[in-house]
Design a binder for these strands. Structure first.
Lengths: 265, 265
DNA sequence: CGTGCTTTTGAAAATCATCAAGTATAGTGG
DNA sequence: CCACTATACTTGATGATTTTCAAAAGCACG
């Protein structure tokens, strides 16, 4: 049931290349892991597999740690693996030739990556903070899926939900103002934390955590760094939020933010 | 194998309410149809069902005709049906309370609608031109899916492809200029026509067909009607396209348009 | 306690939106 | 068949949000 030590890896950080271009280097993990004790199982597609079958799942999986700024999926590369985030936050993005970047999503614990039908990835993925991911061979998983139709059903559910989220994001990118985009982003983050986080209580006094940079937020919301910064400053001046530090935001007026987010202003 | 006459309908056009708000009215269709002869089967998820099982599929389906401007899915409504477009073009969209609209996609022949896991639709759908759709009961289809895992696999494929398209659209909405958006749109339309249309040959001299209004294009590309019109005028002045009439565009310089679309200016 | 990076803030510029006519196009009824 | 109306589209002038360019202020790390 345990993943063999030699099949677990850690991504190492090379030094001379800019972070985003650095190749992924792998090293053995010191501690072995199991699917049974996986912290992501509850929220991931793996919960479609029953306990008794977990060893089969584990045998196809490899655990990897990716350091902040390191990429582990590159758009256009041959898609040989599926990934499942077990901790940390991953940014998914597409680039234009001149460097313009659109982050299409932030994948947290339990998120499944690499669903493309195509033989190559249609997006890139990079760790925002230290990330643990579980890697599956595409071909092995395909066989596994034939034996576990429940998992295939789960994948369809996941894909459907992502499609809904993508459509919501299109509405944001195509039709919302900078203020509305930031409000939407903060409310979505807050909702994410209360639903998937360790805390099951409302946690109204808890700050919203922003592990990504302003640049990442800008590229996710279709804005510039400066506009993100200015807009946060303005929301703060209006007492809708407080920004104690770069990575935390207190939602002082969730209702006000919510109506801003939905365009009622 | 034939759909019973009484389960086929035509949408009728009421007169006093603005098109978008008019309720859908149904009338019996005069001619019966079959899944076996369905023009959309080749390009739809239904091709996962073998010929011998087609009658089971047909028994769960209802054929509907929707007139231009009529909606048949309303965001927030209880999701009781799945739909499959068999001819015509459907626009899918989300609205903000003040009327701002984002069209998330145009669904043509073979497109499957209503994949949401939720009990209610997350988007609205409206006919662009006269549309024929095949309607399935959600509950019936769920049972059908258990018997035909191949169809479930197809649905996952479809959902994955839509996800890829959605991410591409996010890149467009978040990071491309108006010119790049129009170029991307035209090239995507052209590709769609050559891949799914009746003509299998390149058809370079064929015009790109735009059954939707400038307003629809604007709401799809996150622009205004005026910007769409001006940008098309400019692309025409630059000899990249010709616009013989409102609904057709000739791609005079496909390569130039392609590099514009991908951000290589 | 510098050094380098991220973030914030300011001023100027630009793209796109808004407001406002004016021009086609299609459908209707005389 | 043609005027008439409604709708869609185009074009022009103005304006605003956001971007770009620039620089200062925070913060983290050695």
């Amino acid at each position: 049931m345990a993943i063999t030590d030699t099949s677990s890896f850690v991504a190492e950080r090379p030094s001379s290349v800019p972070a985003r271009r650095r190749p992924l280097v792998l090293e053995p993990l010191h501690a072995a892991q199991t699917c049974a004790t996986c912290s992501a199982r509850a929220t991931s597609v793996c919960n479609a597999i029953e306990d008794k079958d977990l060893d089969r799942l584990a045998s196809t999986a490899v655990s990897i740690i990716v350091q902040p700024g390191h990429g582990f999926i590159e758009e256009g590369d041959t898609a040989e693996h599926f990934f499942n985030v077990t901790s940390g936050t991953v940014k998914l993005f597409k680039l234009l030739p001149d460097g313009r970047r659109q982050i299409t999503g932030f994948a947290g614990i339990g998120h499944f990556l690499g669903l493309a039908v195509s033989t190559s990835y249609s997006f890139s993925a990079e760790a925002v903070d230290p990330v643990r991911i579980c890697r599956f061979s595409r071909s092995k998983l395909r066989v596994l899926l034939d034996d576990f139709p429940a998992m295939e059903k789960r994948l369809l559910e996941v894909a459907s939900n992502e499609l809904v989220a993508a459509q919501e994001q299109m509405l944001l990118l195509g039709r919302k103002t900078a203020r509305e985009r930031l409000a939407s982003f903060l409310m979505a983050r807050a909702g994410m934390q209360t639903h998937c986080g360790a805390e099951t209580k409302p946690a109204l006094r808890e700050p919203v955590s922003l592990p990504m940079t302003r640049g990442d937020i800008a590229d996710y919301l279709g804005l510039t760094i400066e506009t993100v910064s200015r807009t946060l400053t303005r929301l703060k001046a209006e007492r809708l939020i407080d920004v104690p530090n770069t990575t935390d935001v207190m939602l002082l007026d969730p209702r006000g933010l919510q109506s801003l987010a939905t365009g009622l202003d």
